[in-house]
Simulated scan of single mutants.
Amino acid sequence: MRRFSLWLRGKPMIADGALALLFFALEIVSYISSEREEHWQQLALGFLICLPVLWRRKYPRVSAVAILLMSFTSTFLMWMSGNASVEHPGLLALGVALYTLVVYVDRRTAAIYLGFLLIDSTLAMLVVRTDIVLDLIVTAMLFALAWISAEFVSARRAYDEEVAARLEVAEYDRDRRAEEAVAAERTRIARELHDVVAHAVSVMIVQADGASYAVDTNPALAKKALGNISSTGRDALAELRRTVSLLRTEVNNDAMPQHGSAGIAKVVEMMRATGLNVRLELTGELDDITPSVSLGIHRIVQESLTNVLRHGGDSPKARVTVRRTDTAVLVEVIDKGTATSAFTGGSGNGLVGMRERVAVLQGTLETGRRPDGSWRVYAELPLAIQD
């Protein structure tokens, strides 16, 4: 049953079609029980009332307006014909339309629609001339039930979307940290490789020069130098093979961050999906910066916004400003959080990692609490890195 429910959730038009058929079946039952075969057009109108339900989630506004127009049409036809006994149980779709607007559109649109529903219901009651007070109470209860149910479902959907967004950020952050760990390890291996090869080659060159000078005058010394060259070469080759074997795994380039303004915008949009209120300001040309500086900007913004999300309270806000000058790129991230969020965690090495990255790029980093209680991260990264 749960598997069927998940399958049905992915195909909304099937569920909506079943609901429309249910309403139309009620119309057929009402038509048969009325024993008024000459009013077959009322059955056609009932079909038109139920039909928009099929597209209620794909086109919620259009579907809701179409159902409301059919309801007005039904009231008008009753008034013109003087026959107030015609019932349309398919008009329950009005409550479904109100529910759909609250869940899939917004409350303002739903409130306007509710106003038209009350006007339509009042007109229908005046035409039918029944107990208006009782009918108003029943109708109000029906619409109130639809609205309250929609509020519960809407809140649940918003919660699920926020949790899914936060899980996506956590997964992205986990993959990013894994890639950074691999990159750091590769850098360490590259340094080892450089040290091993440079040392071995230097020794071999010195020994070879010495052997060439001593080959005629001191053959024993030359022989010893050649032996040193041989052993040094073997040791270097063994070390080289060991180091290269660590580099055989491939790096997933798709997991690497996107550079430039597009990369910064991607990080900001991902954080906004979690509920973090972020304002982004980009000034100057940021797409032709060297990859190392661009990656540094990307990581500083990402780590700062992640910290805001973790520690910025229940309604975290942040402002990200990236400005390029003639000689440097200035990155500033200010959060407006005042409490500790429930989504906390992390190793506590975020600021340390930022400082190390900024130091590698020969820039400066300032972090700390401001007088107004907000937290500020400010980095200045030079465009030209000195050797």
Rank of each mutant, 00 (worst) to 15 (best):
R2K: 12
S5K: 11
L8F: 07
L8C: 06
G10N: 09
D16P: 00
F23K: 04
E27R: 06
E35V: 09
R36E: 09
W40V: 10
A44N: 00
L45D: 01
I49G: 03
I49Y: 02
L51Y: 04
L54W: 15
R57G: 01
T73S: 14
S74L: 06
L77T: 02
H88I: 06
L94R: 01
L98Q: 11
V105M: 05
V105Q: 11
R107H: 07
F116H: 11
L118P: 03
L118N: 05
L123W: 15
D131T: 07
M141C: 13
I148R: 09
Y159T: 15
L167P: 00
A181Q: 14
R188T: 11
R191D: 10
R191T: 13
E192F: 08
D195C: 01
V197L: 12
H199A: 13
H199K: 10
V201F: 01
A211S: 13
Y213Q: 09
A222M: 04
A238Q: 09
R248T: 15
N252V: 12
G263P: 01
G263V: 10
E269Q: 15
V278T: 00
L280G: 05
E281P: 00
E285P: 00
Q302F: 14
V308M: 07
D314V: 11
V320Y: 01
V331A: 02
A342V: 09
R355S: 13
A359F: 00
G363P: 00
T364K: 11
G368W: 05
R370E: 12
G373S: 03
L383M: 11
